[in-house]
Write a protein that binds this DNA or RNA. Structure first.
Lengths: 246, 246
DNA sequence: CGCCGCTTTGATGGAGATCAACCTTCGTGG
DNA sequence: CCACGAAGGTTGATCTCCATCAAAGCGGCG
């Protein structure tokens, strides 16, 4: 069940089978299955546990008082939410499932035991959280500078590569359990314009998106279209010197 | 010299005079003074030291290949850049000074010694970095959902409150060493429209911005205008149970 | 079947980009 | 001490991308 997490972390550092065991055990502590569009965390909640997405997608979002909503990040299989969040008194954002989702809830003491007892895992999780922050910065760039076509293209590149990193793609395709309304909330566009932008990307023979499946026909052209530079994902096995030698 | 940092951290937890001493000593290790618009870190650099802003402002930004630029965050006095950044092989963004800036460079071993030897400081720094991430998320919301007037109003509220938290305001005023071009790069607007938006805020008697000084005449109305909710700054002395008892 | 969530299409309007000047301030050097 | 140039700020005119409004398709499921 922790395949996606392990596979992702191994882009940073190679883990021993003991390390993998530790993660698998932590993720088995308490598993929850959720249907579509169910709340996981609500703004104002007291942080209680750490969530690890085992299967399916979720999203983090914020509402403005007048009802506007911005999705600020997507959680894919293998993604953890903010490690140190226990420090805060209340959450400043909400989290909800997109399609059907399976999450592991990891309790605070259990999680802290892992961080303290297994420094290679801890390092890998720090790397992961630095990448998460870099992704958030890139979203700022995306919303601030790119036009509609570039913006959607960039988002698709990011999500596809992140999924591939976690072993969640099939050739040129992947699950994509996100409605156009949700894409609109993530890109700061209207649903109507998301729809037209998707048509444009389809007409350019870059992608297809139907039946909750995204197919990217030509990733390198899609990357050009979205001015996508993957450096912020820091994927080149950076922590090789920390590899488990087994 | 570390007044701003200490003052900020004390919104989370009260530090002992020994803690403060530790911070002051670390910040004295190597101090650099920079003029306006000087590079501090460039995208592609290998992370080498941690920076602490002692005086003045800096910004983090990213360029697209075609020259567009997005400022993704501002560094104010007392701000540290990403704690764990050493893990990464190269930087995915750049940092530059805005006006004149004094920064402390803290070496990796020195910094790690502080984190390990002084858990109260470490906790406070974790809190600070969680707030930094929350700010980045809020920028995503700002760029994705708010219109020009709201966006600038929101940014001013955030910066003013962050400065006040670090003891860097004088009544309703504060230094504001940011040109309209830079405001445009931070808000994803054109300079022309930034200019017109500032005029609108002035005409509404909410602010004045001249001679690198921002004055906020009516903060609560400015907050309404920008749909600003300060909860994401987590300022209410959250870690009180960790206070140094002296 | 009929309804609900999602997608698609067409028509209209507006927020903000872009282009092109011009003005103001201030630091520098002659 | 003034001249000049560069950087920053201001203005007006035009244009375009995308929001908004409204309505119609289209699955899929109870």
């Amino acid at each position: 069940m922790t395949d996606a997490l392990v596979k992702k972390l191994e882009h940073f550092v190679r883990l021993s089978s003991h390390d993998k065991e530790i993660l698998a055990r932590a993720a088995a502590e308490r598993v929850r299955k959720l249907g579509s569009h169910e709340p996981i965390v609500l703004e104002g909640d007291k942080p209680a546990v750490i969530y690890l997405v085992l299967d399916g997608w979720a999203c983090r979002y914020k509402h403005l008082e007048d009802g506007r909503r911005q999705i600020v990040s997507f959680f894919l299989p293998g993604d953890l939410c903010d490690l140190n969040v226990f420090i805060l008194r209340e959450m400043d954002h909400s989290i909800a499932s997109l399609g059907n989702v399976t999450v592991a809830e990891i309790s605070r003491p259990n999680f802290e035991a892992i961080l303290e007892g297994h420094s290679r895992i801890a390092q890998a999780l720090w790397w992961d959280s630095l990448v998460t922050i870099a992704i958030q910065r890139e979203w700022t760039v995306n919303l601030g500078q790119r036009d509609a076509l570039e913006r959607v293209a960039h988002l698709f590149c990011e999500l596809f590569i992140r999924l591939r990193t976690a072993g969640q793609t099939r050739g040129k395709s992947c699950d994509f359990p996100v409605t156009q309304t949700e894409l609109a909330d993530a890109t700061g566009m209207s649903t109507v314009h998301v729809n037209r932008t998707l048509q444009e990307l389809r007409n350019m023979r870059l992608i297809n998106l139907a039946n909750r499946t995204l197919t990217i026909h030509d990733l390198s052209r899609l990357m050009q279209t979205g001015l996508f530079n993957p450096n912020y994902l820091h994927l080149d096995h950076e922590g090789a010197h920390l590899d488990a030698n087994e």
